[in-house]
Design a protein around this nucleic acid. Sequence first.
DNA 1: CGACCTTTTGATTGGCGTCAAAATCTGTGG
DNA 2: CCACAGATTTTGACGCCAATCAAAAGGTCG
Lengths: 257, 257
Amino acid sequence: MNNKPVHRDDKDKTDCSHCPIRENSLYKGVPEEELEWMQKYRQFQVVIPPKKTLYLEGSQVDYVYTLYKGWIVLHKSSQAGKRQVLRFSLPGDLIGFQGTRANIVQHTASSLSEVVLCAFPRAKLSEMFATYPNIALRLLSMETNDLNLCHQHQSFGNRKDAYESIAFLLLELFYRSKNQLIQSQNEPKNSILFPLTQEDIGDAVGLTNVYVNRVIRKFTEDGLIECHHRQLRIIDEKRLSKLADFNPDMVVPDFTY
Amino acid sequence: MNNKPVHRDDKDKTDCSHCPIRENSLYKGVPEEELEWMQKYRQFQVVIPPKKTLYLEGSQVDYVYTLYKGWIVLHKSSQAGKRQVLRFSLPGDLIGFQGTRANIVQHTASSLSEVVLCAFPRAKLSEMFATYPNIALRLLSMETNDLNLCHQHQSFGNRKDAYESIAFLLLELFYRSKNQLIQSQNEPKNSILFPLTQEDIGDAVGLTNVYVNRVIRKFTEDGLIECHHRQLRIIDEKRLSKLADFNPDMVVPDFTY
DNA sequence: CGACCTTTTGATTGGCGTCAAAATCTGTGG
DNA sequence: CCACAGATTTTGACGCCAATCAAAAGGTCG
């Protein structure tokens, strides 16, 4: 994987006015005049090939991104070289908001497939909040949803076994993918595009790729799922949900404001 | 543990104007006029004895709380009855912001010691943001800090072993406690008040109380810590930090705005 | 002082990691 | 369009960290 952050030298930047802003949940239900204001500040579009780094842990990120197309993985690496996946970001998600002083981020963001993002300058956040306070509430809601999902992932630690953890993750991604405002066309009802390797799954739930493989095979043999060619099909959703102690409300975002 | 949420019937509510608002990090550096406005809306103070529930997973929480005194644990319980600790909240922390539609929270908050909280009505958030946009930025920063801490906790899953996880948690709590704006008096430099049981620790890092005990004993024998009578003393901070792959920046909040 | 909670210790078990190697897939260049 | 290199998946054997079960000892509070 190429570790050099993208668009440091401002190439790849193109106008993003053609990205349908309405399709991002951040703007759902926002009055037209607010949208026009937002539109003005969405500075540019970024297109990244698969397996590239959007930004690195410890680097300064002066933009907030909305993911328009493709999957991104947020992760951290330990001294020992092990990787912890924090979250898989799907189209419609907000990325790069978790900066602290001087906009330093604490995690790395990498593309899993080809991705398209729109960038919004963080420096304008203050102005935006002053002009449209409701956007602040909305952003807070999105952060809250992120935190709730993160809490779910924390619970991977005390689940019964590897089967439960992996089943939960698969269902989570299935439902989040189906819940996107931006829908892929020509996709069977029980199937989604799925660009993860078994190692990605392992790094998310805290298992080795070898053991993940054994579990996935078992699920396949038992007729619960099919997972080939970057496509995930949930065959027996009911049984899988029961195994995972899962229900969709646990992972689908929910907006207060 | 008594599972009935407190102050459902509005007892225990007293004026909280004597709680020094300046001591909460939410208000650090906020201009005097904004503070006065905030003060007006802090509705009441809540005092809770140890081991009581502030609010239950799935219930409606119409207030945001700032913790003034004592420790609180945020946790979830699985079908299997196992408990996952999401976070220990220390004085100065914001609690109960993670509500979604209709202010339903996804976790339970319980007191570990006697706690004192100040409550702010969520219904006033919108008004507050419109009046003082900078408070919105500050709240977002606090949420971001929470999320970063949550990401650290996610990484308990792929740490080398139990020693590393527990060492990290102890150091985290030590530094967060020392970093509080509200300082306990008469406290030795290398020691903090520590109301957790070994079972609490286990539920946070994903280990059994039995194994936590073995690790803590080993740390004590090796002269790394002392932990008796609700008091934690870090004896060999350097060695413990190395063992945990820890540095304070990982857990101490950091405000952009 | 007695009931309950928390800590401590020992023996046994098993889920998952580790190591290794083969099979299959994917994408890239000739 | 095929060939080849690297990435990913698959399979097997073996070992260990931490879970589990059980019970005793120490602490705490009414």
